[in-house]
């Protein structure tokens, strides 16, 4: 590989920049306030009526800081991808707002919205479906620039070559078609394309889970190196808790469309506080056979977001459930600096 992804750790190791450890707080790049996305459940074809709502995302608030990574973890269907789509303007929020550099993007003018679009790019899970199979790699990587910038062809070509080399590929790769690459290489191409507009934020929806184990570390390290180089923020969606620990500065744990716990990464992993987070941690696979894990296997399945349970949404599966849990909705409590939990235990 030709990137800076050598085997020696970079001089400024990312972990020394974990929140709470450095003096100057990074600025907030993007903020979600009480974000909701409800999908109507309809009956009838031409004249349809709404019979219910799938509350895919139901009141999310979080912040993403410049140059940092926010991780969102949770089980399938908890609303992670829907959240990502709202940030990418692929879905319109039902309620709530997204503030980009302090501006509500849904209230601002078309010029600012265009600016926002350019600043927020994405890399998705499936490296086989995220590149148009009928376009040459150089055209794929150039496409965002062709759409948004009026650059001379020569400059675009140089930039494409720079991006290819940034993600560890060669200039001649630009002339090939996506199917001529392996999964890991295709993910590199997707990253190069996402970087082409110098975005401020890249949404990474399960970027490594479709890759071979020996390739995952390559891509994770590449993403970390690029973050240093470009000072870009990431929103990382993943269900693999160890990956999130490695990649993120902040973590939000989602359950049924809501954030149940939100904390700096080390705090969350060393002091998981919400019962659901604890259950996730105990269900996650250990990295060594001698590690004793707390036995806390959840029974049952995630209820349908069509009829989420009343009170605390986790109460039907919670081992610590109390009487009030099925009635009162828990409020968000800050149990230590930056560590937010919504559970009646706190």
């Amino acid at each position: 590989m030709t990137t800076s992804a050598g085997q020696t750790p970079p001089s400024s190791s990312p972990s020394s920049e974990r929140p709470g450890q450095n003096g100057s707080e990074p600025t907030v790049l993007l903020e979600a306030r009480d974000l909701k996305k409800w999908f109507p459940v309809t009956k009838g074809v031409l004249i349809s009526r709404t019979t219910g709502w799938i509350k895919a995302v139901d009141g999310l608030s979080f912040q993403i800081r410049t140059g940092e990574t926010l991780g969102i973890v949770g089980e399938s269907g908890c609303g992670k991808s829907t959240t990502a789509k709202m940030l990418l303007m692929l879905e319109e929020p039902t309620e709530g707002s997204i503030l980009y550099q302090g501006q509500d993007i849904h209230l601002s003018g078309p010029e600012q919205r265009r600016e926002y679009r350019k600043s927020v790019q994405a890399v998705f899970q499936d490296p086989w479906s995220s590149l148009n199979p009928r376009m040459r790699v150089k055209d794929l990587i150039a496409e965002p620039m062709v759409i948004n910038w009026s650059l001379p062809r020569q400059e675009i070509r140089e930039r494409v070559e720079k991006l290819l080399s940034d993600v560890g590929l060669m200039a001649y790769h630009g002339n090939l078609y996506p199917h001529e690459f392996s999964g890991g290489q295709r993910q590199r191409l997707a990253i190069a394309r996402a970087l082409s507009l110098n975005p401020k934020l890249i949404v990474l929806d399960e970027p490594v889970s479709a890759l071979d184990v020996s390739i995952r570390a390559q891509i994770m390290n590449l993403l970390k190196d690029l973050q240093q180089e470009y000072n870009v923020s990431y929103l990382l969606i993943a269900h693999h808790l160890a990956t999130v620990r490695y990649m993120c500065d902040w973590v939000a744990v989602m359950y049924l469309g809501q954030i149940v716990e939100y904390a700096p990464v080390r705090e969350l992993y060393e002091n998981p506080s919400h019962p659901y987070t604890k259950a996730l941690m105990s269900a996650a696979l250990p990295s060594h056979p001698d590690i004793e894990q707390e036995e806390m296997i959840l029974t049952g399945e995630v209820p349908s977001p069509l009829n989420p349970p009343a009170g605390c949404r986790f109460h039907p599966r919670c081992p610590f459930v109390m009487d009030r849990c099925s009635v009162d909705i828990p409020v968000v409590t800050e149990i230590s600096p930056g560590h937010h939990v919504s559970c009646h235990l706190y």
Binding site: F124, S130, E143, N148
Partner: peptide, 17 residues
């Protein structure tokens, strides 16, 4: 439904494009 169509939207591509 292919991801590359969503990504084209994210890149700012117009519907005709």
């Amino acid at each position: 439904t292919m991801d590359y169509v969503a990504l084209a939207k994210v890149a700012g591509a117009s519907t005709p494009r």
